[in-house]
Simulated assay, not measured.
Amino acid sequence: MEDEKGKKTQLFVGLRKANGQIGYLSESLSIPEFFEMVRPLDHQERVLVDFAPVIETLHALHKDAGDQTVISKYKSMYSYWHDSISYSDFRIRLPKCESLSVAANELLATLEDRIAEHRRAYKSRRIVESSENLRVILALEKEVNIVIDTLLCFIHSKASLEIASFKRDVVLGEYCRRLLAVLEGLLAQVLDYSTYNDRFKLENDSLLFHLAFVENCVIDSYSQLLPNFESKEDLRLVVLRSGNSCEVTHGHNDRYMEVVTRYRVPDQNELKMARVLRDLCYKVRSVNGLINTLKHEVVRWDPSEHSIEELKGLIRLAPPGSKPLIALSGRG
């Protein structure tokens, strides 16, 4: 794929965008960010590439993950979508897409209720073992992935029929908004992130302080998802300044100032929950970015075989055990 300047851009999951945000799609899958599937064709026109290969790839990953009742509805919805794309005649496709719309809305409503249940099931770390909360978050992760796959089927169906319909759409954007509110709220809880007078409370129990010392380069990927995070300062300095200092003598009466400070060390379950929720937030933001682009910009549907093959070429399954590829995107 090429940007406006004609430069080739590789877009991978585990993507570090120009503004430092990180959005993961899968630990083993590289794929364009969803909003990057809208690309410039020339200086006057932008097109949405027929992204059926993306949906098919994600379905292969998620078709057997999660609760059996949800999986059954998901497979049924996917079948409606897969059947609808096999027809080129608009008169035949229209009722097929209507059936897909009904199935997708039904599945999204079911998943929204289940995700709300997971939200209620998550308890403060002071009340339950972290392993119990981790089970809740991992179950939620599976169902959020299916929400994303379902939204992509819905978007694909609408775009292929009448891409201008997104100008009037409120339903899909609302799904994303409500889901993000849940995920970002849970992330704040897992991170022990709280505010006072709309400012971050500098309490050393927050996972952010631990991350600042052991993996400071990822702090921005979390803080950009948090409300009222305005600290421009290195959190390590915040922790050090909160410590107690005293003068000590060493060796030949050399005098030193010794600073004693502390921050909470989370267990591995807490760190994993934080990573899962962070990555889910960026996935949903990426879908929402696609919806907003279609809503606010002039975009044409591009079902050309050349574009589809080009997109397929960007979808890669990484070897087991390898790290996600990282590339810069030209978009914030």
Rank of each mutant, 00 (worst) to 15 (best):
A18P: 00
G14C: 04
V102G: 03
K158P: 03
R114Y: 12
L61K: 14
T57V: 07
A52C: 05
V38C: 10
A104N: 08
Y256W: 12
N253L: 12
E141T: 08
E184K: 14
R177G: 10
R125V: 08
I127G: 11
D234L: 05
S242Q: 14
Y263N: 01
P319V: 00
N145V: 02
E215H: 12
E98G: 01
N105M: 10
I146K: 12
M273I: 01
C153P: 08
L294E: 01
E4Y: 15
S130Q: 13
V287M: 09
V218T: 04
P324T: 00
K272P: 02
A212D: 06
P53Q: 10
S84W: 14
E4R: 15
D83I: 06
N253T: 06
W301S: 00
L179K: 15
G321P: 00
C97P: 02
R178Q: 13
E106S: 03
L61G: 01
S165M: 09
L107W: 05
M1I: 02
A327R: 07
E143S: 05
L151N: 05
S329V: 00
G243Q: 14
L237S: 09
M37C: 06
L235A: 00
F209P: 07
S322K: 03
S88Q: 14
K5S: 10
E33Y: 12
I308F: 11
F166A: 13
L58E: 13
Y196L: 06
K232Q: 13
L271W: 14
L41Q: 14
L108H: 11
T150G: 05
S329F: 03
R236K: 15
R39E: 15
Y24I: 02
R255A: 04
D205R: 09
T293M: 09
S157V: 00
I146W: 12
K323E: 03
L161K: 14
R177H: 14
Q21F: 02
S245L: 09
N292L: 12
C246H: 12
L152V: 02
A109P: 04
L29W: 14
D234A: 04
R39W: 15
K167C: 12
V214K: 08
R199H: 07
E56K: 04
E33T: 01
N244Y: 13
Y122E: 06
M257H: 08
A104H: 13
D89M: 12
A121E: 11
A121D: 10
D64L: 13
Q224D: 06
V13A: 04
L180S: 05
L317W: 14
G251M: 07
R168N: 10
V190T: 01
